[in-house]
Amino acid sequence: MSKQQNHVASLSLDKQLCFSLYSASNAMGRAYRPLLDKLDLTYLQYIVMMVLWEHDSVSVKSLGERVHLDSGTLTPLLKRLEAKGLVLRARSEQDERVRVISLTPQGVALREPAEAIPQAMLCQADLPLEELQALKAGCDRLLAKLMK
């Protein structure tokens, strides 16, 4: 293969990991949409709610670090969740500069119907659990390398 042919082959869309990840991510988002529509949540709102269901009260900074979102994306998302009555945004009692997010009773109650979503997604994926766990582990390793 000539250098020119090799260069063109390296730009083949079908050989790009980034395109496979992008396409899979888009398909995952489409699969989640009807499940999340029932809860009146977007996917990003859902991942924020998952962190809050796990911890109940967190600073905006630590929440952003946990879900890999900057404050420019996170702040409007949190305002929308607050407008829906799911979260409260308040100043920390220890440090006025720190914003703390906590669940309202309505936000806590939303957890129960949300608990069916992971199983529904497993059914849609229709792959062995071990394969899905290996895929997640690989994505986690890739993320760690790329975030260095």
Rank of each mutant, 00 (worst) to 15 (best):
D95Y: 04
M28S: 13
V108S: 10
V51W: 10
G72S: 09
S62Q: 15
V87T: 08
E131V: 14
P76Q: 06
V100L: 15
A90D: 13
R97W: 12
I117K: 07
S12G: 13
H7D: 13
S59G: 13
L142P: 02
V87R: 02
V58W: 07
Q16L: 10
M50T: 08
E96A: 14
S57F: 06
M147L: 10
L17N: 07
P34N: 11
S71Q: 11
L110A: 12
K136T: 12
L129A: 10
A134R: 14
K145N: 07
H68S: 13
V108I: 10
C139G: 09
S71D: 12
R30K: 14
L81T: 00
D37F: 03
D37C: 06
R80P: 01
G29T: 04
Q106P: 02
L36G: 04
M50L: 13
L77Q: 05
T75K: 11
F19V: 08
K61A: 09
R91M: 07
L81H: 04
K15I: 05
V98T: 10
L143A: 09
D140P: 02
A137W: 11
L129P: 01
G64W: 09
A125F: 02
A134F: 02
W53L: 03
A120T: 02
A134W: 04
K148L: 09
Y32G: 00
P105A: 06
A27L: 12
P118R: 01
F19N: 07
L142Y: 14
K15Q: 15
T73P: 00
D126K: 11
A114Q: 01
Y43V: 00
V51A: 15
E54N: 12
K15V: 09
I117C: 10
R111E: 15
M147N: 12
L81G: 03
R80G: 07
L41N: 06
I47N: 07
R33D: 13
K84I: 00
I47F: 07
Y46V: 00
S57Q: 15
L11G: 01
Y43R: 08
V98A: 02
L129I: 06
D140C: 05
S25A: 10
S10G: 06
S71H: 12
E115I: 03
W53M: 04
L110P: 06
S12Y: 14
L74R: 03
K79R: 11
K84H: 08
G85P: 07
E82D: 11
L132Q: 05
K145A: 14
Q106M: 08
S57W: 04
R141C: 12
L52A: 07
S23W: 13
D126L: 03
L52I: 01
E96M: 04
P34M: 12
E93W: 05
R89F: 02
E131K: 15
G138V: 00
L74K: 02
L35K: 11
